[in-house]
């Protein structure tokens, strides 16, 4: 359908849109009908963080007749936000002869149903200290950090088990893309064919003039051509301010004097004097609740608390690092 009509459809309220989609579906033969609910383009999953599973992942089903079984993801179906799996329910579907596969000899085929990625749990294999392997199914996964994946050729988020972030579930390896006759080998693509000799002299002919490399009839300005002033530019463009008046200078001087005259260290005798008074008071305390309060608000306790937190953080970092190493070892072993 052209944009002229679909545009109108997108502006309609949800129930009207559903109605028209259903109407359109009814007029089709079953083979061409859309499966599941129609999902508008802006709500379709595009990123791995949305899918949570990719082709090749092992998953455990948590709903439906296959509940509890472990299967494999065969592919993604973006227009319904669902996935194809090797273990799946099927439904009979009548296919017109024009769409028959090579080995097909009847109209009715068993077409696999898709499942929502919310109804499956990712299964990961971990290794114990003694080398034995075991499986876990992650209740939920979260994404923290990114790395460049050589096989996907892009930045991929690091998938971790929720509440056990040190367990990293590596992404499945995609099928290697096969080169065709028109493919350019990577070493050719990365080869540098031009080196500039000088940044002062332009190599193009003197009469060469061009406003922009962009399409001259483009309506909007190019989105990356933002006119942004950087910090250095602002400094250069700002006129020098009025010098400080004598009054202000006097104020600065006064502030400095106040700062210098402030006592920063407590002398031993003052400490002794205050301490003796506090000791006199605290040594008569008999209320255990008050003792607890004193221990909690004391400066000592605060210092200890900060030190303890720091230590816990270091420990967690170490755990995550170790898990990453372990997972790397597993992926390397499984690749071989």
């Amino acid at each position: 359908m052209s944009k002229r009509y679909t545009g109108v459809l997108e502006r309609l309220p949800q129930h009207f849109r559903d109605f028209f989609m259903r109407r359109a579906d009814q007029s089709q033969i079953p083979a061409f009908r859309s499966q599941g609910k129609y999902i508008p383009e802006e709500k379709r999953y595009t990123r791995p963080e949305q899918w949570k599973v990719l082709e090749g992942d092992r998953v455990m089903f948590v709903k439906g007749p296959n509940k509890g079984k472990i299967g494999k993801v065969l592919g993604l179906q973006p227009f319904t936000n669902s996935i194809y799996t090797d273990i799946a329910e099927t439904e009979p579907l009548a296919v017109p002869r024009q769409l028959w596969q090579e080995d097909q000899n009847e109209y009715l085929i068993d077409y696999p149903k898709t499942v929502s990625p919310d109804d499956v749990r990712v299964v990961a294999t971990l290794v114990r200290e003694d080398g034995t392997e075991y499986d876990i199914a992650a209740e939920d996964v979260i994404f923290k950090g990114k790395y460049f994946d050589e096989d996907y050729k892009k930045m991929m988020p690091i998938r971790r088990v929720k509440y056990h972030e040190h367990i990293i579930i590596p992404w499945p390896r995609p099928d290697p893309a096969e080169d065709c006759v028109f493919s350019t080998p990577p070493e050719v693509a990365e080869e540098r064919s031009h080196v500039e000799n000088s940044i002062l002299q332009f190599e193009q002919p003197a009469d060469f003039t061009i406003q922009s490399l962009r399409d001259p009839i483009m309506k909007r300005p190019y989105k990356w051509d933002k006119q942004v002033l950087k910090k250095g530019d602002i400094t250069k463009l700002t006129a020098p301010g009025i010098p400080y008046s004598e009054t202000k200078k006097a104020m600065f001087e006064e502030r400095r004097q106040i700062r210098e005259s402030q006592i920063t260290e407590m002398s031993a005798e003052v400490m002794e004097f205050i301490g003796s008074r506090v000791a006199e008071h605290l040594n008569n305390v008999t209320d255990p609740n008050f003792k607890q309060y004193v221990d909690k608000v004391s400066g000592q306790y605060r210092k200890q608390k900060l030190a303890r937190r720091e230590k816990e953080k270091q420990l967690l970092d170490l755990q995550i690092k170790e898990a990453e190493k372990r997972n790397k070892r597993v992926t390397r072993a499984s690749a071989q």
């Binding site: 002794e272 205050i274 301490g275 000791a279 305390v285 400066g299």
Partner: peptide
């Protein structure tokens, strides 16, 4: 509940 010297008490 407490038996503190002056400096210990000051730390509190």
């Amino acid at each position: 509940l407490f038996n503190l010297s002056a400096l210990e008490a000051f730390e509190k």
